[in-house]
Design a protein around this nucleic acid. Structure first.
Length: 254
DNA sequence: CCCTATGTTCCCAA
DNA sequence: CTTGGGAACATAGG
């Protein structure tokens, strides 16, 4: 579920609640995660976001948490259904909830240059142009590949391309420098606005306190098949691209 | 039963 | 070796 805005929302809320606090005990409710429980102890020294993943520094260890499709973090309030992990703090309990059990814990790899840019730090059109040159994969698949820009998933890719007025099916290598400028602007506009809205709740995304986000009210095309395009009034279409539902306006996304 | 789902990784063919 | 597409992972809901 979570893309960059949702993970960034969680990161900020986790900093409010557990940064500097101490994990007294970790309990793996899902055996798939039991090997990590012993590593989850001690003071929380830092919480960073790497693309869609959270990197958590504890006194004696460093772990990378990726929520994948249905992972959620919830602060306190009794044991929720589909809980896979519980972290006990003096002031409350943090649960990892994940019905499909795709979420992963791992040891972060130290790599700076080979991982994708963080879109919140600014993306240069020339960087995108250079990386896409000669590639025939669809523009939307390029944006969703975490190796170039890290954090964009299916919903926000659709929204960014609508704002930029570009077809998701365009070969990435055919996009001009001027058009990449519109993509870069769309990335910044959409992701920052979505963070201000605390993410997009279409089915099950909730923030750390169980509250839904607000960005679903602002979606331009995602989930709006057969509705009018907010820019030109043409009918929004849905197609499948790289196995993912893809929403776009056939008139103003060239 | 069918299809769909905010993600990543592995396998395979070109 | 590189590129891009599709299946797999596991579960719930329409």
């Amino acid at each position: 579920m979570p893309e960059l805005p949702e993970v960034e929302t969680l990161r900020r809320q986790l900093c409010e609640v557990i940064l500097g606090s101490t994990v007294l005990e970790a309990e793996a409710l899902d055996p798939k995660l039991s090997r990590w429980a012993p590593h989850l102890r001690g003071q929380v020294v830092a919480i960073r976001r790497r693309g869609k993943a959270l990197e958590i520094d504890l006194e004696g260890s460093q772990l990378l948490l990726h929520l994948r499709m249905t992972g959620r973090l919830l602060w306190g309030d009794g044991v929720p259904g589909a809980a896979r992990l519980a972290l006990f703090f003096p002031q409350g309990v943090l649960y990892l909830i994940d019905p499909r059990r795709f979420a992963t814990l791992s040891l972060p790899k130290r790599e700076g240059t080979s991982s994708g840019l963080d879109p919140l730090k600014g993306v240069l059109p020339s960087f995108l142009y250079d990386r896409a040159r000669g590639r025939r994969l669809p523009l939307k698949a390029f944006l969703m590949n975490q190796r170039w820009v890290a954090g964009i998933g299916n919903i926000y890719a659709c929204e960014i391309l609508h704002l930029a007025g570009l077809s998701p099916f365009r070969p990435a290598g055919s996009v001009s420098l001027e058009e990449w400028g519109r993509v870069a602007e769309g990335i910044e506009t959409v992701l920052k606005e979505a963070i201000r809205c605390r993410g997009t709740t279409i089915s099950d995304w909730r923030d750390l306190y169980g509250l839904p986000g607000e960005y679903q009210k602002r979606l331009r095309v995602y989930g709006r098949k057969d509705e009018p395009c907010p820019r030109c009034g043409a009918t929004v279409e849905r197609d499948v691209l790289s196995g993912r539902g893809t929403y776009f306006c056939p008139r103003c996304q060239a």
